[in-house]
Structure formats: structure tokens, C-alpha cells
Amino acid sequence: MALTRSFDAPGLYFQSRTRWRLVEIVFWLATLLPFALLPDYLILASQIAITALFALSLDLILGYAGIVSLGHAAFFGVGAYAAGLLSKYGWGEPITGLLAASIAAGIVGYATSFVICRFRHLALIMLTLGFGLMLEELANSAGWLTGGFDGLQGIETWKLFGHFEFDLYGYVAYAYSLAVLFILFVFARRLIHSPFGLSLRGIRENYVRMPAIGAPSRAHIRTIYTISAAMAGIAGALLAQTTETLSLDSLGFERSAELLVILVLGGAGRLYGGLVGAMIYMIARDRFSGVEPQYWYFWIGVLLVTVVMILPNGILGGLAKLAARWSRS
């Protein structure tokens, strides 16, 4: 990358990063293939898209700002319950439901960000874990509101734009989830390739030094944490709306842990890491559990160990390294 030392070098740098590459365009076009080639798999595809969005939201804080979280499902759940409750009490319009969910999750994210921004590393794992558990127990005890263990009953999502009904085959569910994923991906991409995104990476590398060059670490962390929470909330709302079911597992520890696995599998700190991770993990899960409903976790384990041993930086990290070697030789 030969940067001229001219006046607008930073501008050129950001421009070079934001340009859409051919691989990316092919990737997004390929996400449309299931409609034509695999119409029986659209429901799975829609849940992959939702998980991908959720993983992208975690990537923003974990991969870019270095905030390790084991409680990200809390925001997923808050968003899901916000949209679910709204729908249960008479407003099932999906788009406004998403907005409400993002606001609810964003508020919770903003409130907790004041604590989050004061700690790093292991302390963060404990904090986010504890926060997630608290919220889960809160939702359990508020059974009159959340439906408790049995789950929230009575969610009914209206037709999308008043026209498209969420069908048994998942055409609308996938189109809807994919569109939301794409829009938020473009937003995240823009964010990461902005000066703000660059300063986040600086914070990840050295939290203490960044304020010295004029980037307030804590304020930046609060901002990205809130954005990430809102995005996770939207993912949760998508799941609640497209499946019309919701229970406490949506904000449980297992969902947070699985998400972390997905992101590490795909490659943290890469925009497409969460997307690729969600795809590989969920397709593998679907296949393995179909063949071997009792012991499929064994094969998931094999997959994870293999990927981490051969590609320590995740699938995308490995591919990038491979591509680099290729271009050199």
C-alpha cells in the first residue's frame, strides 16, 4: 500500500479501505442463491442470517474494541422480548418492532457501558457473564410479563409492509432477515473504516495510550458498546418476529457462549468473520445433528479443534494468510 505523503493521505487510506471488492460482491450475490437452489433450506438460511447479524454485533466490540463478552445474549434477549411484547400487546408491525427493539437494547447497553468501559480483559468476562445471568433470572422471576420458563405466548407478526406474510417455507423470513443483515453490515463496514473505527482498533491494542493522541478510550467504548447492543437487539427481534416464539434461552449463557465460538471460528476482528462463522457452524450443526442426533456435539468439537489448530485466527484469518502467500509466490 504505497501511500503518498500528501495532504489528503488519510482520506485516500480510508477511501482505499471502503471500496467494495469483487469477493465481497460475489459473497453478497451468493446469499441470494438459496432462493433459487435450496428453497427447502430457507428457514435455516434465515436463522443463519440472524445469527450472522448477532455475531457481527459481537465482532464490533470483541474483534475491534477488544471487549470480551460472555453475556452478549442479554441484549439479544432484551431486543427479542421488546419486539415480542410489543407484538403480544397489539403492535405486530415488523419494522417498527425492530426499531423499538434496537432502542430498548441500546438503552440497556448504554446504561451498562458505564461499567464496561472501566475494565479490561478477565474482569470483563466476569462482568458480562454476571450481567447476563442477572438479566436471565430477572426475566424468569417476571413471569407475569415474560411468560417465564414456558416462553412468551401470543406473538403475532403482521405482514411485512402489509403485503408479505411470513410463510411456512421461510421465503419472507429469509428475505427480511437478509435485508436487515445487509443494511446493518453496510453500516458496520462504514463505521469500521472510519477514523472512529481506527481508533477502536487503537484502543484494542493499547487502551492507555489512545487518550494521549486525543482519542478518549472510555467514551469510544461507550459508543461502540451501545451500537453493538442495539444491533444485537435487532437480531433478537428478528428471531422473535420470524419464529413467533420466544423463551428465556434467548438471553441465556449458552447463547452467549455459542456466539463467541461462532465468531472465533469465523475469525474475530474481520467484518465477514461472524458471517462465515455463523454459516459454517449452523450448517455443520444442522448436518451433524441430522445424521447423529445424540452425539453430534462430538463432531462439532472435532470441527472446532481442527479449525483452531490449522487456522488459529479463524477461517477468514487462515484464508487471508493463504491469499497473501498465494500473491507472493
Binding site: 427447502d40 428457514i43 435455516l44 419464529t243 416464539t245 423463551s247 434467548s250 445433528s289
Partner: peptide, 17 residues
């Protein structure tokens, strides 16, 4: 088909599939 635990979204998807 395995749901792996409390997971209504998975259960519903499996039923649809």
C-alpha cells in the same frame, strides 16, 4: 431431530423443516 435443550426457535424450525 435434536433441539439440544430449551430452544423454541430451533424446535419450530425443525418442525417446519
Amino acid at each position: 431431530k435434536d433441539t439440544g435443550g430449551i430452544a423454541p426457535d430451533v424446535s419450530k424450525r425443525l418442525a417446519q423443516e
